[in-house]
């Protein structure tokens, strides 16, 4: 007989906002399905304590340019698909992604510096190739982000894309584009609770409803600041549950980008033999980073390797099981 253990139950007053990505034809978009995240009123996976209406979602990252700097392991898996964002997106859907994250890296001024029309065309092509909701990220340079995201917002009117990144420097333009064309934004801040809150306040101040804002608190990979970002996410989530309205946005974490940047996953030359099998190590790196972020409160984890997708989905399923 199991001894009678009293499980302490925490009563939270707040709740994470429920946010839907993507719009089907009925809502003015063309997505085959939408994804809703958030809505929980307890800490991650503590289903005995509160309700968690939606499982965390798993996204796969694709880019509009051959990712030269990616780990050979990723290049080996995806092969020629890396040269065709639409085909890449289709495959990502096949291997089980819930969401596609498209990074418009080719627009970077220090790279190909492709223009707004190119970005819009790429997004159109990807939308045509997959029925999944889309997150579209600019190249990461404020002026260029503004230029391409405005065009993307217009080209994909009604699709409820999430546009990012909305940062301190360029949030105004991205928010305005989202306002004008009915999209969401990804609000990204550098591992800091107060900056995250402040950006949400500034975005609200422009009158974008908070049910259209995702928060990216910045991810640190295993061995590269994971505990730091864990701590910030945990604090954000506790603040959300204790009723701080400006921290109640679902969290999106760019796990793949960070985990595959680590030396341990990226390369296999000149590393100690004790590190073991390279491929296993790379996947472990991504999976461990992702599962830790999920435990800290991530609502969307963005991955790069399909094997990690399978394993993380399994992890989520077992943690969500009653």
């Amino acid at each position: 007989m199991t001894p009678a253990v009293q499980i302490p139950i925490e009563k939270w007053t707040g709740k994470v906002r429920e946010i839907t990505l993507g719009a089907t034809a009925a809502d003015g978009g063309t997505r085959a399905k939408t994804v809703t995240v958030g809505g929980e009123n307890t800490l991650p996976f503590l289903s005995f304590e509160g309700s968690i209406p939606h499982s965390p979602a798993v996204a796969l990252e694709i880019q509009d340019h051959y990712p030269n700097d990616w780990s050979p392991l990723l290049k080996e898996y995806w092969g020629d698909l890396l040269r065709d964002p639409a085909a890449w997106a289709r495959k990502a859907e096949e291997v089980g992604a819930d969401i596609i994250v498209l990074k418009l890296i080719s627009a970077h001024p220090e790279g190909d510096n492709t223009d707004a029309a190119h970005a819009a065309a790429t997004v159109k092509a990807v939308l045509g190739a997959t029925g999944l909701p889309l997150v579209v990220l600019g190249p990461g340079q404020a002026d260029k982000d503004n230029e391409v995201l405005v065009a993307v917002a217009e080209a994909a009117k009604g699709e409820r894309l999430a546009l990012g990144n909305c940062e301190d420097k360029n949030y105004r333009t991205v928010v305005a584009a989202a306002l004008a064309h009915g999209h969401l934004v990804v609000a990204k801040t550098p591992i800091d609770v107060n900056l995250a809150k402040q950006l949400n306040i500034l975005i609200t101040d422009m009158r974008l409803d908070l049910d259209r804002v995702l928060m990216d608190p910045t991810t640190g990979a295993l061995g590269y600041g994971l505990e730091y970002s864990y701590s910030v996410m945990e604090r954000l989530r506790i603040a959300a549950l204790t009723g701080d309205s400006m921290t109640q946005q679902p969290l999106i974490c760019t796990v793949g980008e960070e985990a595959w940047r680590a030396k341990e996953s990226k390369v296999n030359t000149g590393v100690p033999a004790a590190w073991g099998d390279w491929k296993k190590r790379g996947i472990h790196w991504e999976v461990l980073t992702a599962s830790t972020q999920l435990l800290a409160g991530a609502n969307i984890v963005v991955l790069r390797h399909p094997d990690s997708v399978a394993r993380i989905k399994q992890t989520i399923a077992s943690l969500m099981a009653e």
Binding site: N146, V150, R172, T173, V175, A176, A177, A180, H181, M206
Partner: peptide, 11 residues
């Protein structure tokens, strides 16, 4: 919309 975005974002 094009001008509106610039008016709203302050450019």
């Amino acid at each position: 919309r094009a001008w509106g975005i610039q008016l709203v974002d302050g450019r």
